[in-house]
Design a protein around this nucleic acid. Structure first.
Lengths: 195, 195, 195, 195
DNA sequence: GATGAATGAGCATTCATTCAT
DNA sequence: GATGAATGAATGCTCATTCAT
């Protein structure tokens, strides 16, 4: 007999997969239940609502993400190394929580409108502070170019990394670290040959 | 008095705005009608269905996009100049069809499953051929780096450009051309200072 | 330019045809308008409502039917000859008003519930009185069998005649009079060979 | 506690009653639900659609009808006895499935246009073959009159029997067998006194 | 822990009807 | 006489959720 928290995880993983594939709104509770081999009503023994399922999926993911990010940010690295570490950590999270990341990308804007999901906005703010701050520090330190709009750069780097969740498939050709390495190489040095 | 095609356009613009903001599924026909100052049923005088609205929004956009892309591709430019022209053209399209682009980004995967939207898949294929081909040509010509996974590079450049639709607001600080210039600068030369 | 009453007739004939083919409820005003080469709204210049169209179709038919029936009933014929004349007259009406008869058969029960269509019920009553009365007279006179339930006989004869509207096509192989002759022959003498 | 198939039957019986009384199109799903003491949406737990309800009603009826008919047709009876048995069987079916028969009479033409109801057309064809064949055999054998249009006779007998569903009420004065006996007597020997 | 059956609110869509032009 | 555009009520259907068993 599976212990309750394990069963919960299992169900949430199933739900996350379906949410990621079909979108939160387009996913019916019945579909999740089907995938989990039970009837729709039975899910309500485990969860209060469909909303609380995404909630748990996203908050679990964000908790882990911030554990990793905070560790990086508190490590006292230089701006370039911080960026490198954040990107690498991000791809690791994508690897571990692909579905959750995809949901986050697609649905967080909608969900953030609901009070219970305000933490998404908070996270967004913290996120921006971390990345933008690091980039600014890098510009000040002379490691990043000064001729670029810093907010544009921020969006560029941020999106560049996270959209990867839309095509990334765990167990593919490249490890998350390898993908991070190539992405960083492109972001930092560009794709053109230096002449 | 508004001519019929003008009214259609007006309504589609309204619909596109709402679809982009709330997502296709989460958007009710009633909401669109509200926004257009009419009753839900009245929309059906102009359109067959909610589906045919997105259809017209997306196909109009893609038609225009490909007009621009085809012009670039047939201009006989070198790989670097082609990439530059495609990126610039893309940002111009984002400027002109922000809502449509956002819808395309968020919903095309779902919609492409329906027969009537197979042209989305076709477009996707043509798109990949155009960009990937140009990148490969660039690598062969020695203008793009050879040490990068070419498909990774493709996704990097592609996503980098189109996600911009999620935050871009027409009439903002930068013109589409200026944004294109800075994006290109980052993509081609990187964000780090060459030492 | 067509005079108004002629145009009305034309439109009603069109409507009757569609009502008969698709059923009253299933027929949309738009469909009738299409068939008449105009827009749905334009019909309302000629008629108050869809209901008033069937109303006019049915009442016109019933007026003519009763003109014929009354002539027969007042002719002072014997029971057998009366039945023969009524059946013949009925097939002539089916020939002239096929669509109206078909509508009457299919929809009168529903429509009779509405106050404006109470004349359908009245007609039904008169109808029963005429047929049932004649049959009873025939039984009393010894021209019709006495061993049959008279109401059953009435229904038998009535249905037998009118259902023909569901398959009858004007201009077919047999004239209405010929069909009447054969029907009467079956009803009166049976289909089996007398041994 | 009602078992599932029993509940289904119950609901279908309710639906059939309403369909027969108001017509398929004019019957709203809400009305059926009202009659069944539940909400409209609840019906969809048991059935896919309004269409699938008529489908099940009609196909169940036809299955039973053909069981009876086939038994008769395979019994090797003479033409007259076959007609007698078919008519009797028909009235028994009307007795058992009055609502279904009424629906079949009124709606099958419309419904047969839909692919899922093609079996209605098939049944119609088989039906015609059975009756017409028997009549032809009877004419050849000299038990039925030769001076009648055989197709007219077929329609006469067919309609004569089935329209009865429009007025028949189970539990009435006459048993189905008695009605069949009188109908057969009229059809075979006529209503007039042989002089 | 799970099922079966039902709720109730909401949704896309249809359609008879209206009316200014 | 007819059109184009809109109304508003109703319809079939979906779906998250509840709850007795």
């Amino acid at each position: 007999m599976t212990a309750t928290p394990a069963r919960r995880r299992e169900l949430l993983d199933t739900a996350a997969e379906v949410f990621a594939a079909q979108g939160y709104n387009a996913t019916t509770v019945r579909r999740i239940a089907d995938e989990a081999g039970m009837l729709a009503g039975s899910l309500y023994y485990h969860f209060d609502s469909k909303e609380s399922m995404v909630d748990e999926i996203l908050s679990t993911f964000l908790t882990e993400l911030w554990a990793g990010y905070d560790a990086v940010l508190e490590a006292g690295l230089g701006p370039r190394e911080t960026i490198e570490a954040l990107v690498t950590e991000s791809f690791r999270e994508i690897d571990r929580h692909r579905a959750a990341v995809a949901i986050y990308q697609k649905e967080s804007k909608q969900l953030a409108a609901l009070p219970r999901f305000h933490y998404l906005t908070d996270s967004q703010t913290k996120f921006e502070k971390a990345w933008l701050g690091t980039l600014e520090r890098g510009v000040a330190d002379g490691v990043f170019r000064t001729d670029l709009d810093i907010r544009l750069t921020y969006r560029f780097v941020r999106d560049t990394v996270w959209v990867a969740a839309s095509w990334y498939r765990p167990g593919g050709q490249h490890s998350p670290e390898e993908i991070a390495r190539q992405y960083l190489s492109m972001v930092l040095d560009g794709i053109s040959v230096v002449t």
